[in-house]
Design a protein around this nucleic acid. Structure first.
Length: 485
RNA sequence: GGGGUUGUAGGGUAGCCUGGUCCAUCCUACAGCGUUCGGGACGCUGUGACCUGAGUUCGAAUCUCAGCAACCCCA
């Protein structure tokens, strides 16, 4: 072999191994975010990323699903980014949880501010003083609002694009106010069911658990969380719902006049989802060829690649007709007429996670068909007549297949373990379900000895009695344990 | 919270220890032209970089300090 041949074959190898394998997850993840144009992490401030237009389009679609799920009984709103120090510092428990992570604005131009302003790390302390003004009577309740905003947290740990950021760009936070503690508890359940539906739409399986008391939201009575298991077996918290009780109501004096004329404290909840949902989406579904996007959120659902051989004008004309027909049917369609070879286009759009590709060439046109290729590899010839219906059917099947695949992966990563030793082994590769009597002391022991975090008690499930992995006491209690992002 | 590794063009690398001969190199980058086009085309001609700042020095990608940024590991 001559030198030039060696160089050529090496170049070819490089092309085919464009992304690192998914088993080196971290590397794969970072590379994919750049190559598929989701976010650019080269912005020169730690923990802050730039959304590429393509990534932003994906984000818009994903958040459209959230909006669709909340809008029937929540009102979208927007509160200011800056929170005055005096309001921020009112709620002691809350401050304790966040004060090390707050960015402060201390001057306006060259003038020092008399009252420092916090960049919201979350918005309770911005919103609740206003709730005090808005809520007067039982007729004002329940009140349910949400906003999608950026929040800032001075993370001291290592930051990761979309996962651990100093500027969370897309924090969807809902805040609700109720007459009673029970009403608020019910709202927490509603929140979890909406989030469950949201993740089902993204074809993402998840765990729901009640966080242990030492890991709940600062100021909350309890926290229920949703976690997705990432390819490396670590879990990513992708949604939380907090029952705030009357903690903030007391601090901010949020009261209402009951029907009997009595002034009562409200009960509150808040629940949130951030762009971590995009991180989960990308990580769970993606493969060595790049992104794999669910039909419902793909910025481009169908790409048409014309094979420009023979009668080029005819191929283009058919392609354009097809594009028009699909667009008219509400499909996000892209006709790729760029000056690249078809193979290069195939790889490009697979990297971008486009669910369905249509190839239109002279051979296809002759037979009155197009070649339809799904992102999961299935390839078939489909007649031009009735194509829209065929595509919709394929999209449904694709979504089902995606969910099945993800569910199988998920299930394989969760395992029941009886002892600390077993849990320690299991948390190296996934999530352990461990018998736990519920005692705080046993919980701390578990975390220390298993060397993993406790996600908390699984919700909506019951278990037979088993011996607590620490104290041996019989109980029906369980906890998920995992290494967490 | 602790430790480690690293920063060279759009991406990937070499050079750094031992300061000068460095116009470094490769590509999946970019631009132009031509031939091509059913799974990452090829040829030719070009383009483009030493993280920032201070210091040492006749001279710094290279040595020193600080900062910023990134990645990995452990708690």
């Amino acid at each position: 072999m001559t030198d030039s041949k060696i160089i050529k074959s090496k170049a070819k190898d490089n092309k085919q191994a464009k992304l690192p394998g998914k088993d080196s997850f971290s590397e794969w993840y970072h590379e994919l975010l750049m190559t598929a144009e989701i976010v650019d992490n080269r912005y020169p401030v730690k923990g802050m990323c730039v959304w590429f237009p393509f990534g932003f389009a994906l984000k818009k679609n994903v958040y459209a699903v959230i909006r669709e799920l909340l809008d029937p009984d929540h009102q979208e709103t927007q509160f200011p980014l800056l929170i005055p120090e005096n309001e921020f510092m009112k709620e002691a428990q809350h401050i304790k949880g966040f004060e090390e992570e707050v960015y402060w604005v201390t001057s306006g131009g060259t003038t020092p501010l008399e009252v420092k302003l916090a960049l919201r790390p979350t918005s309770e302390t911005a919103i609740y003083p206003m709730f005090k003004l808005w809520i007067r009577s039982h007729a004002d309740l329940p009140l349910r609002i949400y906003q999608i905003v950026n929040t800032f947290r001075y993370e001291t740990k290592h930051t990761r694009p979309l996962i651990r950021l100093r500027e969370i760009t897309s924090f969807k936070e809902a805040h609700t106010v109720h007459a009673t503690w029970e009403d608020a508890a019910e709202q927490v359940e509603v929140a979890i069911s909406r989030y469950s539906e949201f993740y089902r739409r993204l074809a993402l399986p998840f765990l729901v658990s009640r966080r242990p008391s030492w890991d709940k939201f600062p100021g909350a009575d309890y926290t229920t969380a949703i976690d997705v298991i990432m390819p490396d077996g670590k879990t990513l918290q992708v949604g939380t719902a907090h029952h705030l009780g009357s903690t903030f109501a007391k601090t901010y004096e949020i009261t209402y006049e009951a029907e009997n004329g009595e002034q009562k404290l409200v009960s509150q909840t808040c629940y949130g989802i951030s762009e971590r949902c995009i991180a989960a989406l990308i990580s769970v579904h993606g493969d060595e060829k790049g992104l794999v996007l669910p039909w419902g959120v793909a910025p481009i659902q169908v790409v048409i690649v014309p094979i420009l051989l023979g009668d080029k004008e005819k191929v283009l004309a058919v392609s354009r007709n097809l594009q028009g027909e699909l667009a008219a049917a509400g499909v996000a369609v892209k006709l790729d007429t760029s000056d690249e070879r078809p193979g290069a286009k195939f790889y490009k759009w697979e990297m971008k996670g486009v669910p369905i590709r249509l190839e239109v060439g002279p051979r296809d046109i002759e037979k009155g068909v197009v070649t339809l290729v799904r992102r999961d590899g299935a390839k078939k010839a489909v007649p031009l007549v009735g194509l829209v219906e065929a595509i919709n059917k394929e999209a449904e099947e694709l979504q089902a297949a995606l969910y099945t695949k993800a569910t199988n992966l998920h299930d394989a990563k969760v395992k029941e373990t009886a002892s600390i030793e077993e849990a320690k082994v299991q948390t190296q590769v996934g999530v352990a379900l461990v018998p736990w009597c519920g005692a705080v002391e046993c919980g701390h022991q578990l975390e220390n000895q298993v060397e993993a975090n406790m996600l908390g008690e699984p919700q909506y499930q019951s278990f037979p009695e088993a011996a607590c992995a620490v104290c041996g006491k019989l109980s029906a209690g369980r906890t998920y344990m995992a290494r967490q992002y």
